[in-house]
Nucleic acid binder design. Structure first.
Lengths: 113, 113
DNA sequence: TTATATATATCGGATACCCAATATCTATAT
DNA sequence: ATATAGATATTGGGTATCCGATATATATAA
């Protein structure tokens, strides 16, 4: 038995969460956020935590994801003191644009007018 | 110019598919589509194929997904001749509402104004 | 009845995502 | 130089998602 799933409010627990965990959208979300503002890893993890209403992603999640995007040539890194700032390459911009189009087409109509 | 469909697929990979495969969003997508119109399995698979611009989901994907949602009490089935029509329960509507809220919050700003 | 076509259901395996724990690196302070 | 704190990186493992193939069910046609 799963104790109620009705808890609301800020926590939202797994939030909306018995039907999907948004697994598989992390790379997309990172590209999107970096396209708005270059950030370093922990800053990114914090932003994602706020948006999803969850705890910060584990280092074992965020850094391999960044590494993957870097190996695809979608982002580049630049050291800035103690941190590494990631930003989109032209190729990354292009990939994001395509991914966005597919995303919007797939979920068309899901947003309130 | 700009005639026709977006060509996803050739060239640099899978077109937006290099950064995410939307794995984990299937249950959410099904709930959303069924909330707009009750459908049977193959109809649903066809609608999803059109939205994603891909081939129809394999039976091994769509039916287990529907079974899972049924076991969660989010959808019910009703036989209609040769097919089985799925529709949302009250619990499913509620879960969709929560999931939508999280989805919108997570991807806020991703849509062109 | 049998044959055919379509929808539904299940099984085995491959893939990819994500986390917890651990290790390495960098800059600053002492 | 060492110590400390924070950021970054890697490893190992659990789990859910998804596909291809196969099996079952239903309705229609002959």
């Amino acid at each position: 038995m799963r104790g109620g799933m009705d808890r609301e409010g800020d926590g939202e627990g797994k939030g909306g969460g018995d039907c999907c965990d948004m697994r598989g959208m992390l790379g997309f979300l990172i590209l999107f956020l970096l396209s708005k503002k270059p950030m370093h890893g922990q800053e990114l993890a914090g932003e994602i935590a706020i948006r999803k209403g969850e705890k910060k992603l584990s280092p074992g999640t965020i850094y391999p994801a960044l590494k993957g995007l870097k190996e695809l040539g979608f982002i580049v890194e630049e050291r800035d003191g103690k941190t590494i700032v990631y930003s989109l390459t032209d190729k990354g911009e292009k990939a994001l644009k395509l991914a966005k189009r597919k995303f919007i087409k797939t979920f068309f109509g899901i947003f309130p007018e």
